[in-house]
């Protein structure tokens, strides 16, 4: 496949995956301090899908996501400090401390929300597409979903509606092979392919290497161009792998649901290291420039953690706030 991407953009993609990796691994390292007091689903190992997809989207395009949404939020341009403050339960959090890790939002960059029920935002993103279609703009609505959600009824219901109305919706399925600890083999028949299933529903679809940010970028670029020109919904399935436990900061290859060897095999395809080595090997990026990139990422992430830690908690009298929209100023 021909890649219409220059070296500056490649470096930007590398920065994107390294930044998300740094955020997730810092959360993992600091989680045991007990200050991030909410369930946290890290996307270490899956960064390339978020970065490759969002690099093809505009600020004005919409995105919605799942419980494992840190990467999607950040790649779409969501504010890092406010995300971490949200995970720390602080009033400066993107959801004012009412949401936590699983409920991120930054409407200023089109990230319209992530929720924690499997499949829950598939119809929401479809509805954003309906609204775009009614208003006649050329925005795209991107729905991040996992392989588990393709077993939910709303997946079929939503794709069916998107096809009927030819909605501008980009469905991105990250197939990481597991729904919590349940492998895809026990959940879907062996010869089933999610992208073929989408085709059977009338949604143009293809599959790609979710650990290769350039493959993700290329396939998504083509899909977005088609959607923006009125071609209707597209689903892309990207294979990838969750390195850490379903929820929490640890590795759990020893508890018996998957093998250490499987993890090591996927680690060989590390979406960060493999791409970094390629850019350095191709002399797109010098050692010095790489060091400077890493230094700036660490500095940004440390600053964001400091912001989160130093921010105030919401006042207890905010408990009843935001129940209804008109109650924004009300307290208990």
């Amino acid at each position: 496949m021909t890649l219409l991407i220059n070296n500056i953009e490649r470096v930007r993609l590398l920065h994107g995956v390294k930044r998300i990796r740094c955020v997730e691994e810092t959360i993992a390292a600091r989680y045991s301090e007990g200050k991030m007091r909410c369930p946290t689903h890290l996307c270490t190992g899956q960064e390339a899908v978020a970065v490759g997809v969002c690099a093809t989207l505009r600020n004005t395009d919409f995105a919605v996501s799942t419980h494992r949404s840190h990467g999607h939020y950040l790649a779409k341009g969501g504010d890092l400090s406010r995300m971490l403050a949200e995970i720390y339960g602080k009033s400066t959090g993107c959801s004012s401390g009412h949401g936590g890790s699983m409920h991120l939002i930054d409407e200023s960059v089109g990230f319209m929300g992530s929720t924690s029920i499997v499949g829950g935002t598939i119809p929401v993103g479809t509805g954003l597409g309906l609204s775009v279609s009614l208003k006649g703009t050329d925005q795209v609505s991107c729905v991040f979903l996992g392989d588990g959600s393709t077993e939910e009824g709303v997946f079929y219901e939503s794709l069916n509606f998107a096809v009927i109305k030819q909605l501008p919706v980009l469905y991105i399925c990250e197939n990481n092979l597991y729904s919590v600890y349940s492998p895809i083999q026990v959940r879907q028949p062996a010869n089933r392919k999610i992208y073929e299933l989408a085709r059977s529903l009338g949604v143009p679809s293809e599959t790609g290497d979710g650990n290769d940010v350039l493959d993700v970028y290329a396939k998504t670029s083509r899909a977005v161009a088609s959607i923006r020109s009125g071609g209707g919904p597209v689903l892309l399935e990207f294979s990838t792998y969750r390195w850490r436990e379903h929820c929490g900061p640890n590795f759990d290859n020893d508890i018996g649901y998957r093998s250490e060897q499987e993890y090591l095999d996927w680690k060989q395809k590390d979406p960060v290291e493999v791409f970094e080595a390629k850019l350095c090997g191709d002399e797109v990026l010098s050692k010095e420039a790489l060091s400077e990139m890493e230094r700036s990422i660490v500095a940004e992430v440390n600053d964001a953690f400091a912001f989160a830690e130093n921010s105030p908690f919401p006042s207890p009298d905010q408990l009843g706030k935001y129940l209804y929209k008109e109650d924004e100023g009300a307290s208990l």
Partner: peptide, 26 residues
Amino acid sequence: PERVFDMPTAENAMTGVAIGAALNGT
């Protein structure tokens, strides 16, 4: 028919569609 339409027999997704559309002002 753009503003008044029949729908698939898909009560859950269509409720989500209404929610998503609402986030963009519909």
